[in-house]
Nucleic acid binder design. Structure first.
Lengths: 339, 339
DNA sequence: CGAAAATGAGAAAACGTTTGCGCATTTGAG
DNA sequence: CTCAAATGCGCAAACGTTTTCTCATTTTCG
């Protein structure tokens, strides 16, 4: 026996109209709650549709000039670290509206990007969400003169565009204040390369809280750098930090591991906070990391609803929308309720 | 200035026909390399299309009864660990054919699954790829009587379905043989819960290579379990293993960390191999893990091409297709070319 | 040179919806 | 009662392609 598409006849609105004893036009209007007709007629058509299991053909509907109930998500985040939570939020927000999402991963390849954007446009997407892995970099394609609305989520875009990003400054402040609230007096910041905008934003926020005592160490986004940073910090003879705010979870994990290897107890002697709340890293660290979550799912939800609103013709003010981060408390800081 | 969709007039085939001085019918045939006409005419039409930047409206084309150049990827792997590489492969294989992919994440929720499947069918997808995070579990939705072809990738499916999985047995054998080839005599296997089919397959393959000396420890899929397993293994007074084949990379990382903490040198004293080749874990381990890669991208590519072939009416034999795994050598075993 | 075959190209139908408009019929007001 | 307004519903066009059929013209062959 072979595997092949079975030709199941799909129910068309024509069949529904026939069953309900009305014209196709009336059936359409009944189902869409438009037009004029008796409540009884409308009801009868709807019942027939349900009974027959009618599902409108999205192609025909889309062709007719209205929406396609489809949007495109473009990203250069091949690994999906940032895009997947975003996607989850977008999808969750839009499934209620009957909208499906094309996911296109372009790996910083302008040619591939153009191909995918063109394919999306061919398919008449109602809008496009551009996304990435860095807030200060753009996708390798110009989306500014497309016939459909575009919003940018977790990636940079033109000045007159609609952009969604996380409020890293607020998240950072909460993280540092949390440690301060736990009695930490000497908090340092170990973070990524200074060339990243988010590094600067987080570092500035950190410095804003700790004031003149600020000490910022830049390195790679890796566990190894976390290790090295601890080595540096503990090399001097001066007082050691009692709180370390890290630029991401990988650095934080490196820091925690290095501290343990040195016999420094986390969180008793030193509090550590990460950034990203990357479950796989944060939860596997010993002890599990307290970390700043960027609420990417919520960000995706907002971006999805916004692009949809734009597709429906509503005007949206351009500009940057910062959505709050949230401190997720685990055990690397103390202060955990259970722990 | 406000952000809104600019109404850019899209070029229709009508415009191309006009520009080339032919009828719409001829234009269509020219562009699709069908029908009869002078080479010169065909060329003229094509040139006009390029000059005007004509892109066919996929909705109109799809409505016309042919393919929609769209497929759906359904997964319950919310985290994307397995689905994203798969997706990358699918996308890479199908972009050349002008096919776009709807990604739908359903979290073991049958209702959500049905909604997404229905949405896909409404949008006339040419086929569906079902995918998951476990090879021995099915998605919470019945895909067996759909009007479009379905293939299963990295998830279980009905007996008469087309399924793609990785050849874990072969991968496991290669891993164990690699350690044996490096002179390891006492290789144990630390893996996940016995209830997983992939655990059994990997364990059986391991046992097949090491023979009567097989020692298999089951636990969770976590770093913590890797730690505990080492504790167990080093607790006895008998000879310690000199090779540890782990059921996944997280366990392997736990094992390597525990060994280091115990002063056992990896890879000098003990070789460790992981499974999954999850970059983020494998590369961050000290030393980086040699690990079995399931080639999910290739798997996705195959699945994509297959579902496409089925959509084009080609018949495909049902059954399980096992694709080979590949040992990725890093430093946790010795034997790395660059050290 | 004449008839059959091959060739080049266009007209029109079809795909499944939505929607503007028109036409009866009913309702309401004076 | 009469006439205007409101109501209920259907006709047909439209969306942008592809495809079948037809027809005129050219080529081929005996």
């Amino acid at each position: 026996m072979e595997q092949q598409a079975k030709k199941v006849e799909r129910i068309r609105i024509y069949d529904v109209a026939l069953a309900a004893g009305v014209s196709v036009a009336t059936a359409s209007k009944a189902l869409n709650d438009t037009g004029r007709m008796t409540a009884e007629t409308r009801e009868r058509v709807k019942r027939a549709a349900v009974e027959l299991g009618f599902r409108p053909n999205a192609m025909a509907r889309g062709l007719q000039g209205k929406r396609s109930f489809t949007i495109g998500l473009l990203t250069n985040d091949t690994y999906g670290r940032f895009t997947l939570p975003l996607m989850a939020g977008i999808s969750e927000a839009l499934v209620d509206h009957g909208v499906s999402v094309f996911l296109c991963t372009i790996e910083d390849d302008p040619v591939l990007a153009k191909i995918h954007v063109d394919a999306m446009l061919d398919k008449q997407v109602d809008g496009i969400i551009a996304s990435g892995k860095r807030i200060d970099r753009r996708l390798p394609v110009d989306l500014s003169h497309l016939p459909v609305p575009v919003v940018y989520a977790f990636t940079d875009g033109p000045d007159d565009s609609v952009r969604f990003v996380s409020d890293d400054a607020q998240g950072s402040r909460e993280a540092v204040q949390w440690m301060a609230g736990l009695g930490r007096k000497r908090i340092v910041h170990v973070t990524g390369p200074a060339s990243f905008a988010s590094v600067k934003e987080r570092a500035d926020a950190y410095a804003g809280v700790v004031g003149a005592d600020a000490e910022i160490l830049h390195g790679k986004w890796s566990e190894a750098w976390g290790h090295d940073a601890v080595a540096q910090l503990w090399a001097g003879s001066g007082p050691h930090p009692d709180g370390i705010f890290c630029g991401n979870d990988q650095i934080a994990r490196g820091v925690v591991d290095a501290l343990r290897e040195r016999g420094v107890d986390v969180p008793r002697d030193v509090s550590v906070v990460g950034f990203d709340n990357w479950e796989i890293v944060a939860a596997a660290t010993r002890p599990p990391l307290t970390s700043v979550d960027m609420n990417l799912k919520t960000l995706g939800k907002e971006a999805g609803l916004t692009v949809l609103a734009m597709a429906e013709g509503k005007t949206v003010e351009p500009g940057i929308r910062k959505l709050p981060c949230q401190l997720v408390v685990r055990q690397s800081c103390g202060g955990a309720e259970a722990g």
